[in-house]
Write a protein that binds this DNA or RNA. Structure first.
Lengths: 157, 157
DNA sequence: TATTGTTATACTCTATAACTATA
DNA sequence: TATAGTTATAGAGTATAACAATA
């Protein structure tokens, strides 16, 4: 009945922005985010990962092995959300939980070798999706876009 | 227990992006969108409108009175979602439904005078929130940002 | 038979509250 | 008493399916 794909997403992806909204930054940001998320999801599907899961792997792989809660803070998600995310990754054999040696309340979450491999492969695929997404822009404009977004996100300049 | 405000939002709004994610366009877009949404929500609160409701009013006010379904397509939402959105606006006295003269299956949704007033006031407030949001950028860079987002959203150049 | 609006329902995402174990 | 992780639960948002009225 609907013209949308079975999975998800409706949101005027085909029609393009209606002129009365095309000037609103909120509209532009939202639909840019949705468009890239769609591309990324497709690119990651062969690796059995969602964009969010890839972000979790990325955070867990960076720096020293963090506790679940530290990783949650970096990602900006709730503790309880983190539990579910790590559960999924652990079920897939990509990470392992260990009790912290000094504070046994904490879980140290480390990537398995399989997890590291998957992170590299899926990370490259996501990067490629991002490149395709910004293909309408010159390389310089694409860099400017990211710089502008970063500037606007930062708490202070 | 949580450090987040009671309403919603956790998402590392205070911490800033972790370096391992700051280069990912998906992360930047998502958090820029969330940041602006937060500002806009606060700016619209005195007018009793959400950003989404303002977008609905904007679409309904533009061009000739559309049917609910046409408006839904422009907004990129489902028919059933549109029903709820119009319900809310009608309860607030901002829009009215009429049966279409020629095709009585359709609802023509028109803004009331109160709706038009509210649209102008709230629209100005949202615009002001957007200006504050892009304040870290030069005027030119802010324009470039919007142009780049538009280019990347458009189905074709 | 197809379409518009509607209702009921289900699914996803994510947060809050309460519980366990450690400290 | 406070903290890390967990579980159960609830709320927001949005889609799908089924139904009534109209075409």
């Amino acid at each position: 009945m609907s013209t949308a794909a079975p999975g998800r997403r409706n949101l005027a992806s085909a029609a393009g922005p209606p002129p009365e909204l095309a000037g609103r930054l909120g509209y532009l940001l939202k639909h840019a985010q949705l468009g890239l998320a769609e591309l990324t999801a497709a690119a990651l599907e062969p690796y059995g990962l969602t964009g969010r899961e890839l972000a979790v792997l990325t955070v867990l792989a960076s720096g020293e092995p963090a506790s679940q809660q530290q990783a949650a803070q970096r990602l900006g998600v709730d503790r309880t959300t983190m539990v579910a995310l790590v559960d999924v990754l652990e079920d897939k054999g990509l990470v392992q939980r260990h009790a912290h040696a000094e504070d046994r309340r904490r879980n140290v979450v480390e990537l398995t070798e399989k997890g590291r491999d998957r992170l590299h492969q899926a990370g490259a695929a996501a990067q490629e999706a991002e490149s395709r997404f910004v293909a309408p822009l010159s390389r310089k404009d694409a860099q400017r876009l990211k710089a502008a977004l970063l500037a606007v996100i930062q708490p202070e300049g």
